[in-house]
Write a protein that binds this DNA or RNA. Structure first.
Lengths: 256, 256
DNA sequence: ACCTGAACACCGTTCAAGT
DNA sequence: ACCTGAACACCGTTCAAGT
């Protein structure tokens, strides 16, 4: 795709494709997903609105490229170490993605405004498949599990971001939860007794702790059904049954 | 909220608040989330754009009311039967929500454009908490599990809807998957070997079957960690330990 | 190849005015 | 209470024209 362009030797005037994405990112960060506009980008770059169409066919292409750029900032090293237990590696991936994407809250909305099929998204998918293969999942379950994890991660972020109405960076977690607790305390106990009782827990839905709690339940579910049992793995060591191929890690939960 | 208005006796001119939501829904169904505009609604109702502001303070309020209306169409009966195993009940809820929301694909984007806190959303939350309580989850885990399920359901629907770019009703599943398989077959095996091998499975990510597969893993994870084991439940029948209160259902997976 | 001016068909929202 | 005309500050995209 990115053919080695002739690279003009004149001093000013940068790549201008990167400039456009820089401008789009700046708009995203200060105004949220709705603030990313072709006209806004053009104004920031210092150019007429339609000049953007020299580099991108339409706004959707700009958004797609922006999503790819942010996905490219995900550090694959944090979950690449095959000596680590697979659960810890998945957890590292989930936390890394959460951190990178919540740093630009609006990007989640942009991501789910169209199919996520760019090279960076595919590379992440590939890495996760590798990871789950290392975990001993069979080839039929690994992709299913990878999508399950992706759905959970994206869904979590989408709901977290949706909870704040003002654009800009997400508020610090502690104060955010406190504010939610205050609001949820008004839940009418006569109509919604259980929701009212659980108000404090509900306030923490947007927390990293809830995020990890859910992830661990999910990993339990994947391990339970898609990994061989301890007894089965013992037998596997002698007689392979073609359904599973345990590699290196035990199915212990790291934090639970 | 809905105080009994004087109800004019003149023949024409309906509630006009419902008319607005009808128009918004029609726009949503034929043009997707982006087609829901104040001006479009006004044109459909046959009124000046600013007339909408007589009934709603802003567009966000219209969207919120529309989401609530669609959530109100969710049939609680399909998961209300306490004689049914809890897993089947959760599955019924998940399928009911999926069916209702995919009937109006754009609504998922509208839902996650702001906090989901209306009465209908709360009622659903309450019902799910009741259900998980029936399942024997302790009061600390039930709300966490309910949010986990909600995240999964909403995340799944968001990604399913994001996969189609044209607005309007979702395509029939079989042809949709076939089209995806055709596209994913082009995955370069040299760069993404596992993703390429799993192309057929990836094509079915948007299927109801994958949706249920993920849900079952999730239920396994919830049952494993938050429900007492079989032995523990046997002991529970005699000696209550205050951590769990099993009611009526075994932890068998219905479809797996 | 890269950019512009001008235009088209849209947005959400406000304000003053009318009934 | 309910609605309108007019306006303001925005959108994405196209087209013909310029360098």
């Amino acid at each position: 795709m990115a053919a080695t362009a002739p690279r003009r030797r004149g001093p000013r005037r940068a790549t201008t494709e990167g400039e456009i994405l820089d401008a789009a990112l700046a708009l995203l960060d200060q105004g949220g997903a709705t603030a990313v506009s072709v006209r806004g980008i053009a104004a920031r770059v210092g150019v007429a609105p339609n000049a953007v169409y020299t580099y991108f066919p339409d706004k959707a292409a700009v958004v797609k490229a922006l999503v790819e750029r942010l996905l490219s900032e995900v550090n694959h090293d944090v979950f690449a170490d095959r000596a680590q237990p697979w659960r810890l590696r998945v957890e590292a991936l989930a936390l890394e993605l959460r951190q990178r994407l919540t740093a630009h809250p609006g990007v989640v909305q942009l991501m789910i405004s169209g199919p996520v099929t760019g090279p960076q998204a595919l590379a992440l998918h590939e890495a996760l498949l590798e990871l789950l293969d290392d975990a001993g999942l069979n080839p039929a379950d690994a992709p299913r599990a990878s999508y399950l994890l992706f759905v959970y991660i994206v869904g979590s972020l989408a709901l977290v971001v949706a909870d704040v109405e003002e654009p800009g960076p997400l508020p610090p977690e502690a104060g955010w939860i406190a504010r939610r607790r205050q609001a949820l305390a008004k839940t009418p106990a006569d109509h919604y007794p259980r929701a009212a009782t659980a108000a404090a827990t509900r306030a923490a839905y947007i927390s990293t702790e809830q995020y990890l709690w859910g992830l661990h339940r999910l990993l339990d579910g994947i391990a339970t059904s898609a990994q061989p049992s301890i007894e089965q793995r013992a037998r596997d060591a002698i007689h392979q049954d073609g359904h599973s191929s345990p590699h290196n890690t035990p199915a212990t939960s790291p934090l639970h």
